[in-house]
């Protein structure tokens, strides 16, 4: 088992004909992911690396039974593309695009949640995607650093996730699924959404939780986990040395007033009985110890 994506994933890529979209879709296909369709309005009928391109997501779904979407279109079109995927019947949407206006995401997220009798999951935007090692890779996480195994990972960051996964894999500890929920202020899924899925996944034995400064998603997740998680969690928080009021690369990584500090997040996690590593290496060591 894994969460969100696996051998049954049939992927449609919006923005497949773009340079980035094509490059990463190819890498995902090479990893073994079933990339079944691309969508670029006006380019229907073309093929990219053997993958048929359609004008609309609806058409792509009808022709190829795609069940998962990866959004790779530029920021000003991305919010619309996410809604198009949802409207076409896709239930798992992974949006890699960075710099989508927060106002747009503030409308997209409730739109997804108000579709009648549907359970739509959006991962991202501004995220590295999702990988279930050995099964499927949707996004830009380098498959080489991952290995199949019992650890679920959820993170707001990209390369920091690779660093931690790398340290785990080096110690012979593989992963069920690694989920990058992204560094935006309004993510489609937050820590709680993903923790819940890992709790239900029979193969996941332990969860690694990678947070950073800004907002209170870590604090809320800590409180939720205390009441709802039976599986152990090992956490890491980045940004202890970040100055207040400055955006540290990610749109969501900012300390506003006295809220959103790394220290407050660490304390909330520890109060919920979650161990917090002081650096990526220590996180891997704590995981190793916990798994026995």
């Amino acid at each position: 088992m894994a969460i969100l994506i696996d051998e049954g994933t049939r992927l449609v890529v919006t923005g497949l004909t773009g340079r980035e979209g094509r490059f990463h879709a190819k890498r995902n296909a090479d990893y073994g992911t079933k990339v079944v369709a691309g969508v670029t309005p006006g380019k229907g009928g073309q093929e990219v690396d053997g993958v048929p391109v359609f004008d609309t997501v609806r058409e792509a779904v009808a022709e190829t039974d795609a069940n998962t979407a990866m959004v790779f279109v530029p920021a000003r079109f991305a919010a619309d593309s996410v809604m198009e995927c949802a409207d076409a019947g896709i239930d798992v949407i992974v949006c890699i695009t960075e710099h989508i206006p927060a106002m747009d995401m503030a409308r997209v997220v409730p739109y997804l949640h108000t579709r009648p009798s549907r359970d739509i999951t959006l991962i991202g935007p501004n995220c590295p995607g999702v990988i279930s090692p050995g099964k499927a890779n949707v996004g830009i996480i380098p498959g080489e650093v991952c290995a199949p195994g019992p650890v679920g990972l959820v993170s707001r960051s990209g390369t920091l996730t690779y660093q931690i996964v790398h340290e785990l894999t080096q110690r012979g500890i593989g992963q069920t699924t690694c989920v990058g929920i992204g560094g935006d202020p309004i993510p489609g899924s937050d820590f709680i959404d993903i923790l819940g899925r890992f709790e239900e996944d029979p193969e996941t034995e332990l969860v690694v939780f990678v947070g950073e400064i800004g907002g209170d998603a870590e604090e809320r997740a800590a409180a939720w986990a205390e009441d709802n998680m039976t599986k152990p969690i090992v956490a890491y928080i980045a940004g202890f040395t970040a100055p207040p009021g400055r955006r540290m690369g990610h749109a969501g990584a900012i300390i506003s007033g006295s809220s959103g500090t790394a220290q407050a997040k660490k304390e909330a996690l520890e109060a919920a009985g979650i161990r917090v590593g002081t650096n990526p290496t220590e996180v891997a060591q704590l995981v190793q110890k916990a798994l026995g």
Binding site: S157, G158, Y162, H250, A253, A262
Partner: peptide, 17 residues
């Protein structure tokens, strides 16, 4: 100097530690 916001933040913390 690093690549990716999270990794750079983490690098700052590690240097500070």
């Amino acid at each position: 100097i690093g690549n990716g916001a999270g990794l750079v933040m983490s690098t700052l913390d590690v240097v500070s530690n």
